[in-house]
Design a protein around this nucleic acid. Structure first.
Lengths: 336, 336
DNA sequence: CATTAGCAATGTCAAGTTTTGAGTGCTAAA
DNA sequence: TTTAGCACTCAAAACTTGACATTGCTAATG
C-alpha cells in the first residue's frame, strides 16, 4: 500500500465513523488535491486488497473488517493517551470516599455515555481472594445465616436450618473451628481443605456428623464463583443508525439478556482486545465490535472493562479510554 | 349492552389477543349463527359505546382500552384459579431447599416465558425489617468492613478506614454497644435511635467522637432503603408484533433501562392492579399494560410481582397467574 | 506512466401510481 | 330484527418513474 492509499483508507474510516454514510470519491478529492478519478483508481486498488467495500455497485465505499483492523493497528495504536477530555473520569476516580463498586459503576456509565455504546464491567472471579471471616447469625430458633467475607470485602450468605439436636454451644464451636481453619485460605481451596481436615485431623469429630452445615458453607463459598458484572447503556446504543434494522436490534437485546455477550468478552488475554464483527465468532454479533481490556487484582485474578458497539465505532476515542479506565480500576483493586 | 353484544366483545378481545389482527364481521359470523351484516350492526353499537375501535375506516375492529377494561372486569374476574397449567410453578415453589431469592427469580423467569412479557419482582422495602446483628470485620490494619444483617437474612456492608488513634478494643466495644442498642430495631428507626442515644445517654462518651464510624453505619443501614428487584424477559416480549415499530421498541428499552418502569408499578394498592395503556400516565407506556400484584411480608412491608406487556395481552392467563405467584411469594416471606 | 476529463452504466431512494383485497355502512327486502 | 347486496374506503403491496450519487472504463494529457 502506498502512503496515499493508507491516507485514503484512514479518511474513509474517519469519515464513515462520523457520518455512517458510504464515502464517495468526490468527497475525498476535495481534501486530497487530486481529481475524483484518481481517488477512484486508488479506491479500486484498496478494494482489491480487501480494506474497503461497497454496499452496492454504485455506492461509495465503507471500511471492511480488514480495513478497521488495519486502522486500529496503525492509526489508533500511535495515539498517545490524551487525558485532556477525561476530566469527568478523573473526578470519578479521584473520589477517595466512595466504595469501589460505586466508582466502577459511575465510570462505566460515563464510558457508555461518552461513546454511545453499551459498557460492561465484569468483576474479577473471586477464586483467589482469601477468606477473612466466617460467621453465623441466628435469625430465629430454627434458622440461621451463614456469612463468608473475603479480603476484598465481598460478602456472601446462605440461610440454614438449625436442627433441633444442635445447641448454640456446638454451633459456636463449629464456627470458631472453621474460622481458625479457613482464615486466609483462597476461596478455590476451601472445599478441598475442609474435606481434608474432616478426614484426617482430630477436628473431624466436631464436623463429621454435621454434613448439612458443612455443605451450606461450601455453597456459600461457591457463590463467589459467579462473577459480579455491571452492564449499562443499551439505550444509548440503540439509537445508532446500525440498529434501524429491527431484527438486528432484537437480536442484540436478546444476546445481552441471555448473557451470551459474556462468551465474547475476552477475560484471559492480557491487556486490550478488539474483536470486530465476525471475529467474534457469534453470528448474532457479526456486525458488532467488542473492545475489552483486562486488569489485575492483587490476588491474581483478572477483571475486564468492555465496550460493545457497532463496527463503525470511534476507535480513536474508545481504545485509549478503555485502557485508561482499566488502569484506574486496577488501582482500586491494588489498594487492599 | 345486550348479551350478544357482550359475547361479541369477548370474542373480539379473545381473537385479537390470539392473532394481533383486527377482527372483521365475517370472522365472527362464522361462529355466531347470524350474518355478517347483523354483526356489523352490533359492532357499530359497540363502537358507539366506546368498547371497540377501528384502525382505519374500512378495517376490522380491535378492543379499545375501555373494551379491555370491561373484559377484565367481567370475563377475567369470573375465572376460577385454575392450577392445572401451573405444574412448573408448583415445582419451583415446592422446593424447600432453595433460597427465597432464587425461587423468586425462577418463578419470575417462568412467568415471563409463559406470557411472553417482561416480568418484574420488586422486593419489599426493608424499612420495617429489624436489625439482627451488627458486625465489624477487619480486612487489614487500616481497613474494616461493617456488616448489618436483618431478620430476613439480608446483609449490607460498608467499608471503613480505621483511624490510627483507634485500637481494636475500642472498636469491639463500639460494636458490642451498637448490637445491644440496635438489636430488633426496625431499620427505619435506626438513625433516629442512634442519634438520640448519643445525645441523651451515658453511652455517648464512647460514640461521640467517632462520628465517622457512626456515619458509616448509618450509610450501611440506608442501603436497605433501595429495594431489590429482578427484571427479566425483555427479549421474550420484543418479538411481539406490537414492537415492529422500531421507535416504540427503543422507547420501551429506554424506559426499562432508566428504571422509569418502576414509577408505574403500583406497590401501594392492596392486591392486583391492572393498568392499561394511557391509564399508566407515562406517555412512553401508552401502548403497554402493566399488571401488578402486591404481597405482604411478616414485617408489614409490601413487595410486588409485575408483568409488563402489550395491551393485547392474554389477561385470562396472566391475571390469575400473577395472583398465584404473589400468593406463593408471600408464603416465602411468612416463614420467618 | 500517473493523472484526469468525460461519459455510460448501475443501483438507491423517494415519490407517485395502480391493483388488490378485506372490510365497512347503508339500503331495501324478507 | 335480520339479511343480501352493493358502493365505498383504506392499507398494503407491487410497480413506475425520475433524480441523484457514484462507479468503471476509455481516451486524452502532461
Amino acid at each position: 500500500m502506498t502512503e496515499r492509499q493508507v491516507k485514503i483508507l484512514k479518511m474513509i474510516v474517519d469519515e464513515y465513523v462520523r457520518t455512517a454514510e458510504p464515502i464517495g470519491s468526490k468527497t475525498l478529492s476535495k481534501v486530497l488535491k487530486v481529481s475524483s478519478a484518481t481517488i477512484r483508481n486508488e479506491m479500486s486498488i484498496l478494494e482489491d486488497l480487501g480494506y474497503i467495500e461497497k454496499t452496492h455497485t454504485s455506492s461509495g465505499r465503507i471500511p471492511s473488517e480488514k480495513g478497521y483492523r488495519y486502522y486500529i493497528e496503525t492509526v489508533a495504536k500511535t495515539i498517545e493517551e490524551d487525558t485532556d477530555g477525561y476530566f469527568e473520569f478523573e473526578e470519578i476516580f479521584s473520589n477517595k470516599e466512595a466504595e469501589r463498586d460505586i466508582i466502577i459503576k459511575e465510570a462505566i456509565n460515563l464510558l457508555s455515555e461518552a461513546t454511545n455504546c453499551t459498557a460492561i464491567s465484569l468483576g474479577p472471579n473471586a477464586y483467589n481472594s482469601k477468606v477473612k471471616k466466617v460467621q453465623l447469625v441466628q435469625l430465629s430458633p430454627t434458622h440461621g445465616l451463614i456469612l463468608v467475607i473475603t479480603n476484598y470485602g465481598y460478602v456472601e450468605s446462605k440461610e440454614i436450618t438449625i436442627e433441633q439436636n444442635m445447641d448454640v454451644d456446638e454451633l459456636t464451636k463449629i464456627i470458631d473451628l472453621l474460622n481458625e481453619l479457613l482464615k486466609d485460605t483462597p476461596i478455590s481451596k476451601v472445599s478441598e481443605k475442609l474435606h481434608y481436615e474432616i478426614e484426617h485431623n482430630q477436628i473431624k469429630e466436631l464436623l463429621k456428623y454435621r454434613e448439612t452445615i458443612v455443605d451450606s458453607f461450601i455453597e456459600a463459598f461457591s457463590k463467589f464463583a459467579q462473577s459480579r458484572y455491571y452492564l449499562t447503556g443499551q439505550a444509548n446504543m440503540l439509537y445508532q443508525p446500525e440498529f434501524n434494522d429491527i431484527d438486528k436490534l432484537r437480536e442484540f437485546i436478546s444476546t445481552i439478556e441471555n448473557k451470551e455477550i459474556f462468551k465474547i468478552i475476552d477475560s484471559e488475554k492480557e491487556g486490550i482486545s478488539v474483536k470486530i464483527g465476525t471475529e467474534n465468532q457469534v453470528t448474532a454479533m457479526k456486525d458488532i465490535t467488542v473492545i475489552s481490556s483486562t486488569y489485575d487484582t492483587a490476588d491474581g485474578e483478572k477483571g475486564t472493562v468492555s465496550l460493545v458497539g457497532p463496527k463503525r465505532m470511534d476507535y480513536r476515542k474508545a481504545i485509549p479510554l478503555i485502557k485508561y479506565i482499566a488502569k484506574h480500576i486496577q488501582k482500586l483493586y491494588e489498594e487492599e
